[in-house]
Amino acid sequence: MSAVVTYAPGDNRYEEYPVPALSDGEILLKVRGCGICAGDLKAYHGGIRVWGISEADRYIEPPCIPGHEFYGEVVETKGDVGDFQAGDIICAEQVVPCNECYFCKNGTYWMCTRSAVFGFKEYANGGFAEYVKLPKTSLKHKLPKTFTKEQSVLVEPIACGMHALEQADIKNDDVVVISGLGAIGVSMCNLANLKLPKLVIGLEIRAERAEMAKAYGADLVLNPTACNVAEEIMKLTDGLGCSVYVEASGSPRSADQGLAVLCNHGRYVQMGVLSDLVSADWNTIGDGKELTIIGSHLSAKVYPAVIRGIEKGLIKTDGLISHCYKLADWKRAYETAECDPGAVKVMLEP
């Protein structure tokens, strides 16, 4: 089969790769589409979160096939795979839990200590390929036949956004700030708005994304390069600050900004993967504002809700997939995702 294979930072190769052989309980999926995540781009550029500073703390295990935002058609099964059968259109959650560690046994599988995410391990190759193997312990979900390829690819990123907002525990009197309006951030404007908070504010420097976020439920969008975000948020909140700040940009500057604009007893959610270490005034967090700092990792049991929400029309998807390329054209797809001002979510298809 054809696949994009990662060998080292900056060394992805489009080449022929063996079609995966199945073991008991596994499924072979013919990939129909796979989104490009910011994590895929950071991995390509040698991001420390993925490559570490030595082999001892390296997360990725090359050679491996990237891509965790995939869906496809079941073409082969082996042994007991539940009620999945050839012809089903399905997606899989991005994590491949071990089902043996403390967290898996307690039901919090997304915090599995083995922490295998599709696309970063050779035994959990991802969807930048014609076929992908779904291990026995992976979590699979059938998709409605009415779903478009765009809706199908978006289940994974939207699920990550939904989990982040669940961590934020939004109430109807909250002022919610979402920093970074990529596909997930824009979708979170939609999801946050469904909670009926007092105000949803987006932070974004790209005008196209700002306009989309407004159509998706943001009451207003501020451009951090064009205004003093802290001053504007204080004006909008009678000098108190926002009650929820979701960091979805991965920018260290955004993280510091979040602590500054939160009100007393505010809730900070770190969802974006930060590009560098961040220093903070812990007196602001503790003795100053008594803030709650919350992490958000992967998608945590929300796939069924996301699929239902898209099917009911409550969760929007129009326009989130801005570009689609063939797998062989992966370099151009990466460049578009990184450099095109009009890019939101870019997907690949075999």
Score class of each variant (00 low, 15 high):
95 V>G: 00
119 G>N: 11
63 P>K: 09
48 I>A: 10
23 S>E: 15
119 G>A: 10
102 Y>F: 14
55 E>Y: 11
59 Y>N: 00
43 A>E: 15
86 A>C: 11
101 C>H: 08
13 R>C: 01
89 I>W: 05
91 C>F: 03
113 T>H: 10
15 E>G: 02
120 F>A: 12
66 P>T: 06
103 F>S: 13
70 F>K: 01
73 E>G: 06
91 C>G: 10
119 G>F: 09
53 I>N: 14
104 C>D: 01
119 G>T: 12
21 A>I: 13
65 I>N: 00
91 C>L: 02
67 G>T: 05
35 G>P: 06
16 E>K: 15
94 Q>I: 15
67 G>I: 12
117 V>I: 14
118 F>P: 07
64 C>K: 12
41 L>N: 05
59 Y>E: 00
96 V>A: 04
24 D>C: 09
104 C>F: 05
88 D>K: 10
57 D>S: 01
44 Y>V: 02
43 A>I: 14
95 V>L: 09
121 K>E: 04
86 A>E: 15
38 A>H: 13
78 K>D: 01
54 S>A: 10
42 K>E: 14
100 E>S: 14
64 C>S: 12
117 V>Y: 07
48 I>R: 14
36 I>K: 02
99 N>R: 14
40 D>C: 08
122 E>S: 15
14 Y>A: 03
25 G>C: 05
20 P>V: 10
62 P>Q: 02
87 G>W: 03
57 D>Y: 03
68 H>W: 07
32 R>C: 11
81 V>C: 09
58 R>G: 07
95 V>T: 15
57 D>G: 06
67 G>Q: 03
70 F>D: 01
16 E>P: 00
96 V>M: 10
24 D>A: 13
111 M>K: 11
62 P>C: 02
79 G>R: 08
35 G>D: 05
22 L>E: 01
65 I>P: 03
70 F>C: 12
19 V>M: 12
49 R>E: 14
36 I>T: 03
51 W>V: 14
46 G>D: 10
17 Y>W: 13
45 H>N: 09
37 C>V: 10
71 Y>K: 07
18 P>C: 00
71 Y>D: 05
62 P>K: 08
47 G>W: 08
109 Y>A: 09
100 E>D: 11
33 G>E: 03
73 E>N: 11
108 T>F: 08
117 V>A: 08
78 K>V: 09
46 G>Q: 08
120 F>S: 04
112 C>F: 05
17 Y>P: 01
104 C>W: 03
102 Y>E: 12
65 I>L: 03
22 L>G: 04
30 K>A: 14
87 G>V: 09
50 V>R: 15
51 W>H: 05
114 R>G: 13
54 S>P: 09
68 H>K: 12
116 A>L: 15
103 F>V: 06
13 R>D: 00
96 V>H: 07
119 G>V: 06
29 L>D: 01
106 N>S: 15
16 E>L: 08
45 H>V: 06
90 I>Y: 02
43 A>Y: 00
29 L>Y: 00
27 I>G: 02
112 C>R: 07
52 G>E: 06
52 G>P: 05
121 K>R: 15
19 V>L: 04
24 D>P: 05
67 G>V: 12
46 G>W: 08
23 S>W: 01
87 G>M: 06
111 M>Y: 11
36 I>V: 08
77 T>Q: 02
66 P>S: 04
21 A>D: 11
20 P>I: 13
56 A>C: 01
81 V>E: 02
28 L>K: 04
71 Y>S: 12
93 E>D: 05
59 Y>G: 00
73 E>S: 03
38 A>Q: 12
119 G>C: 03
